[in-house]
């Protein structure tokens, strides 16, 4: 598995554009996430949050622009990038007729993990799913499926996490488990980019916050200097809707 380089930024995006048909979704977007940082991006529906995550995860090919992840070019080194990113999307990316164990075993084999059973035990333990190990995904509740989706994303111990509204469908206990799971390796070579609507959750997790509107990052701010009421006003100004 590739080791990320400390010499580069975790994520560096320059001039990223993506359109679906005539509809521009990302417009010349620039973004930098250093190692050790947790960046939360807030944005209204249709602002380009999900497309940004999908493009960074190499699920969607950009029309133009440069994406470097851990110093690796997404155009040329997508396979290497996928070894060091963990992605949580709106879809759970799991097979409903396979059990929790079978799903994770499958992904473990796809990532060529050596100590896969140990990692599965660790991942399901972190997300509070140990007692569901041999149940089929179909019979799990939506929240449990979402927990498993996070366990899948963490299975290969990724250095960079891309989380697209991970809090949706999770109860308070699961949110705490997610926070703990991300925090376990915090301080090591890790970076997190998360999109969210939930201001309380986003601010509790992030080191830095940003606002995306009309496919561009229009505002960035460190949490240390953040005034929550002021940030809400800024969000309202750029998006026309309240946080």
């Amino acid at each position: 598995m590739s080791q990320p380089s400390r010499d580069s930024l975790a994520i560096k995006v320059k001039g990223l554009s993506k359109a679906f048909g005539r509809t521009g979704v990302l417009r010349n977007l620039d973004l930098e996430v250093p190692w050790g940082e947790f960046l939360a991006i807030f944005g209204a529906n249709g602002s380009g949050k999900t497309t940004l995550i999908r493009t960074l995860a190499s699920l969607t090919r950009p029309d133009s622009g440069q994406i470097d992840v851990a110093g690796l070019s997404s155009r040329r080194e997508g396979e290497k990038i996928r070894t060091i990113i963990g992605v949580v999307t709106h879809n759970i990316l799991l097979y409903e007729e396979l059990t929790v164990y079978e799903n994770l075993k499958f992904y473990g084999r796809m990532f060529a993990l050596k100590d896969v059973d140990q990692r599965i035990n660790d991942a399901v333990g972190q997300m509070g799913l140990s007692h569901r190990m041999h149940q089929r995904v179909r019979i799990l509740s939506h929240g449990m499926q979402k927990r498993l989706s996070i366990a899948r994303a963490l299975l290969h111990h990724p250095s960079i996490l891309l989380l697209d509204e991970p809090e949706s469908g999770l109860d308070q206990e699961a949110l705490g488990l997610l926070q703990k799971a991300i925090g376990i390796t915090k301080g090591s070579l890790r970076a997190v980019l998360m999109t969210t609507h939930n201001v309380e959750y986003g601010l509790s997790m992030a080191d830095r916050v940003a606002i995306i509107a009309d496919g561009k990052i229009v505002h960035k701010e460190s949490k240390e200097t953040l005034d929550v009421a002021g940030f809400r006003n800024t969000y309202l100004h750029f998006t026309g809707s309240a946080l």
Partner: peptide, 14 residues
Amino acid sequence: DKGSLDGLMLCPVS
């Protein structure tokens, strides 16, 4: 339909 194709495409394989 199940969205699992994205999961396959996120794996570090060609």
